[in-house]
Design a protein around this nucleic acid. Sequence first.
RNA 1: GGCGCGUUCGUCUAGCGGCCCAGGACGCUGCCCUCUCAAGGCAGAGACCACGGGUUCAAAUCCCGUACGCGCCA
Length: 488
Amino acid sequence: MKIRTRFAPSPTGFLHIGGARTALFNWLFARKHKGTFVLRIEDTDEVRSTEDSVQAILDSIRWLGLNWDEGPKDSRLSEGPYGPYFQMQRLDIYKKFLDQLMRDAKAYRCYCSKEELDEMRRLAALEKRPPRYDGRCRNLTDHQKKEYEAAGKKYSIRFKMPDSGTTTVDDLIRGKVSFENNLLQDFVIVKTSGVPTYNFACVIDDHLMEISHVIRGDEHLSNTPSQLRLYEALGWTPPAFAHLSMILGPDGAKLSKRHGATSVLEYKNEGFIPGALRNYLALLGWATKNSQDLFSYEELISSFDIEGCQKNPATFDNAKLTWMNGEYIRKMPISELVEAAKPFLDEAGIRPSSGLTSLEAAISLEHQKYKKLTEIPALISFFYQPLEISPVAREKSLSAPEVPSILGDLSSLFETMSSFKEKEIEASVRQYAQQKGFKAGQVFHPLRAAVSGRTDGPTLFLMLEVMGRDEVIKRLKESSRLLAAGPA
RNA sequence: GGCGCGUUCGUCUAGCGGCCCAGGACGCUGCCCUCUCAAGGCAGAGACCACGGGUUCAAAUCCCGUACGCGCCA
């Protein structure tokens, strides 16, 4: 069988972590089986859907690297053999199947007003009955219908659910889950506006687009029996279903805005890289037999399977994501890292002019230290800014009485060196310390602080080499001047 | 309220009747390395497998309840 999966977001906001995870699983499954990954925009919520949201969602999915084979090209146009992929552009298609259901008497017009329905619900709550539609419009006489029509009453279309028996969802993750039909109500398939509801449009599209596997969030499991009845009424074979567990925030509630960042683009802006987010998200609700954590791009695709999917909800853990991001950054080739860091450097105003240390050199000095791209500017900024000695550096590393003479000696020493390479610098400085009877640290620490203004930083001698002799000497002199001038 | 789903270290999870007085990863703690901060290496703390009953020679693993959490229906 040809594997076709889909991700079908509603464009009513940004792409959230939960949605991204659903998209990822569909993408992984399709890629693993050499199938097709379809992106469909479910924009039938006329009030809340926006083009900006569509754009944001497309941007997010692209950034994550989940390339789709069929679907939108931009926020209005789509391409692929089963298009269009925007539901609002498919209304005539839904109409056709609605007519079929009406003809077969499997759906009917419901003239109940919002007030009537509210009242129905209120009564049900009062009598502690489930708040379901009582089916009062199901068997209206022709006379009643005419009367309502004449009165110009608005109507929605409801689907006739069987009122006995059970409907069983055979879920790839949860196994067989049964629902009593008499507990399912005659749900609305077309709203009074004439626009189909989620359950209706979704079924038609999944069938017409020949989706083989519907992989979606757990919150849709309860909708599935209703959809199954629709497939049956239309004479179609339903796809396979797999319902993914939810993603929770640290407090155990469904992940939402109040837990902090939840939109994929926010993660991008916080300095996470797509591969790491993909890898981490894959592990939320899925695992291999040996609990592997880090996967290469290809490995993730080949290892993925539905059996490894978890039934219980997973809590999003920023700490592990951050660790993983660091792992990915460490594995990145330096040129790629520099490219990825550029937007963050720009934002911090770091744009090295010629003559100064190259970004590649500066960034690679601390390559194993970055956990997020956002950390890069602060760690390399001292290369590109006028020397500024931090209070900690001044107190911890530069307060000893011998410091001024050491700094003076070192700058003379550096001037006389034949070459200014890491190994030679280290040898010379060690030799100097020994001659003067200082412990290595007594010299190293002031040197670092005087040149960078900080107590932490890259490995010392390589840093000096990278910075260059002229700049190092200039800074040693500047430090001496600042120290002589006393605390700022 | 009804229905549905879930419950193994703080978190993600391995486990599908004996190999488990429960393994890995993140985080945490300590040590080593070391010019600092990281990274890395090593070690450690951390789960009476939600609770209560069964079934079985044997249960985290199978069955039944209960509790709690979450979802759907409005």
